[in-house]
Amino acid sequence: MLKTSIIIASYGRPAQLATTLRRFPVKPMWDFGAELILVGSAPDENTAAVFKQYAEIAPFTVKWAMASDPGFAHAQNVGLTMSEGELIVFTDDDCYVEESYLSTLHAKFDRNAFQYGCGEIGIVHPEDDPVVANTEWWSFEERVILPPHSLIAPGAIQGANMFFLREVLATTGGICQVGPLDNNDIMTAYLASRAGYTGVMLRGPKVYHDHGRKRNSPEAQRTRDIYAKITGAYFAQLIAIGKKDVFEFWKTRLHGPGGAIDFRRLELELRAAADELAWLQESSRPERSAKVA
């Protein structure tokens, strides 16, 4: 049985964080000898207080820390250095982990068939927007394999419920952000694929996303816009490292529901791509170049 570490990064939402931890499955963590790693993505006394209180009462291993530098991906990498598991699971502070999550993940995880992937993400309230970190659009019954050396589509791997063998993250350099947007999933997954690892979209292990953004609300639209910017930045990263087939893939995403071109999304993606290319050109951080080389 693979020792498992679950990492949650949080900042500025102590009430939501406390609710998430109250609903966190306790007995399975004990039964599987798993550990929970809690990391604040910036100094925040209220978040730290919730971490400390939970660590004191939990009957399984809980480690926590506050990252000295801001950034969600950075906080997750801090958590990664603190973890001891061979299988690393990432979820968010507004996601409720299903009681059967660990038993299902361990039953279905096959390191010979895949080494990283994404589990199911459902919404908590029917009125919440289903586009925000959600996998209920999946149409398959069991799993979809993402072959090595393939282009990982936006949304295939989602940070609210993603998992990696430790060796994969050691090879990719840990959780990788996309430019200043600090996205934590899409580029990390692509680098895993590029390194020769196989991914999976896996039914079974599930979390419920309590994001609170109602259908057709301004908050939901802002999140959709953020996704478009992340996608554009991601495509720019691929272009910058010579992934030529990204242009063909990009064309398949031009049309929205009904077949019409989604000009709002396209504009946001193109602007973000241009900003990302400018950011890459100006960036001189050697560790950045090492991750995408």
Rank of each mutant, 00 (worst) to 15 (best):
K3R: 11
S5N: 02
I8D: 00
A9C: 08
A9S: 08
S10V: 11
G12C: 12
L17G: 04
A18L: 02
T20M: 03
L21K: 14
F24K: 00
P28Y: 08
D31P: 00
I37Y: 00
V39D: 02
S41I: 14
S41V: 00
A49Q: 14
F51Q: 01
K52M: 13
I57E: 12
F60H: 01
A65H: 05
M66C: 13
S68P: 03
S68T: 13
D69W: 09
P70D: 07
P70G: 05
G71F: 06
G71H: 01
F72A: 08
H74Q: 01
H74W: 05
Q76G: 12
E84S: 14
L87P: 02
F90N: 02
D93S: 12
D94G: 12
C95G: 10
C95S: 15
E98P: 08
E99S: 10
S100Y: 08
L102Y: 03
S103T: 07
S103A: 07
H106W: 05
D110T: 08
R111D: 10
N112S: 06
Q115S: 08
Y116L: 12
G117A: 04
I123P: 12
H125F: 09
E127F: 11
D128K: 07
D129I: 09
V132C: 13
A133W: 09
E136G: 06
S139R: 14
S139L: 09
E142M: 02
E142D: 13
I145V: 11
I145T: 06
I145E: 04
P148M: 12
H149N: 10
S150W: 00
A153E: 14
A153Q: 08
P154T: 12
G155F: 10
A156P: 07
Q158W: 06
Q158V: 15
N161D: 01
M162I: 03
F164T: 02
L165H: 01
E167S: 09
V168L: 04
T172Y: 11
T172N: 02
G173Y: 10
I175K: 14
Q177L: 12
Q177V: 15
D185I: 06
I186Q: 06
T188C: 07
G196D: 03
M201K: 08
P205R: 00
H209W: 03
H211M: 08
K214A: 07
N216K: 02
S217H: 15
P218Q: 12
E219H: 04
D225Y: 03
I226Y: 11
G232R: 07
A233R: 04
A233S: 14
Q237Y: 12
L238N: 15
I241C: 06
G242H: 02
D245S: 09
D245R: 10
V246A: 06
W250E: 11
G259N: 07
A260I: 14
R264Q: 15
L270F: 03
A273M: 02
D275I: 04
A278P: 11
E282L: 02
P286W: 10
P286S: 11
E287G: 11
V292P: 11
V292R: 14
